[in-house]
Write a protein that binds this DNA or RNA. Structure first.
Ligand SMILES: [Mn+2]
Ligand SMILES: [Mn+2]
Ligand SMILES: [Zn+2]
Ligand SMILES: [Zn+2]
Lengths: 146, 146
DNA sequence: CGCCGATTTAGATTTAATCTAAATCTATAT
DNA sequence: ATATAGATTTAGATTAAATCTAAATCGGCG
């Protein structure tokens, strides 16, 4: 597991978040294979080898990292929030069977089609729902509705 | 509060949901001014005058109605799920200040732009985030990112 | 080293959602 | 109209997620 990489340390400092081993461990877990993990999953992963962060600290770290924009909360099926080590913008697909959240390559919306009135939009995301490849068996096509 | 309207009774039966006064009360609350209410809010609203449905029944009703497609769970900021009396398809705007969820007129996505692979997509929704008119003061334009 | 504010921590607390088992209701068959 | 079976409702207990608390610990700085 080593110590905090220079790269990440930079990111932490740039975002004005003190680089602690706990925060690093949380971010590191989210970064590896781009999981969309719950706080509980992160807590377990981070302490698999030896105690590294309490539950409260995992929640605190997620909050700091989210405020700093290094992590974002993603839409999810169940009740527990899921987190994503932000980096490049992308959309999401949520499997209605297994709850898995998958990344969908970024694309813009058809300009002007949205009636957003006087609202100030700071970000948007498309959330697709359906059955993921793993759960879907085989079946041919992909349609869309509602 | 009267009894269940013929219209709604029809909708219930068509969806194969037994039309009970509790379910009606829940649906009715969601229908009035198109709120995006939490289970707790519905519970309180429904029992404001006199006891009408227990907390468990509100949750049960929301589940039945959701299964039947008469109601859908919407993306929300806080931890408590919010519900919407479905009807026409539409997108959502979530205010980062006050948490309000507002409806955005439906529009399709640019066909083919999405790389969805072997996933079977059954629905999608665009979620905009930002500052709602009420919270935003005045300010001119509307941009977008993430 | 010694201080101070930021961070971490275990455990308590709060909040949302689900579960349980008994009571009540509803549709249907007599 | 009455009986019966299954669905629904209910209060309260239980579980799960998130937050809070107050005491320890850490880390940068003089
Ligand atoms: Mn993602
Ligand atoms: Mn809506
Ligand atoms: Zn799946
Ligand atoms: Zn607002």
């Amino acid at each position: 597991m080593s110590s905090i990489s220079t790269e990440l340390r930079q990111a932490f400092l740039a975002a004005d978040v003190r680089p602690t081993v706990q925060r690093y461990a949380v971010l590191h877990h989210l970064l590896r294979d781009g999981v969309h993990a719950t706080a509980e999953e992160i807590f377990r992963a981070v302490n698999r080898q030896d105690p590294r962060a309490s539950r409260a600290t995992v929640y605190n770290s997620l909050k700091s990292l989210t405020r700093a924009g290094l992590v974002r909360e993603v839409i999810s099926e169940g009740k527990a929030a899921r987190y994503d080590a932000s980096l490049r913008p992308h959309h999401h697909f949520v499997c209605e069977r297994c709850g898995q959240v998958e990344d969908i390559a970024w694309f813009e919306l058809p300009a002007g089609k949205q009636a957003l009135g006087a609202r100030r939009v700071r970000s948007f995301e498309v959330v697709f729902r359906g059955v993921c490849e793993k759960c879907g068996g085989s079946q041919p096509r992909t349609g869309e509705t509602t």
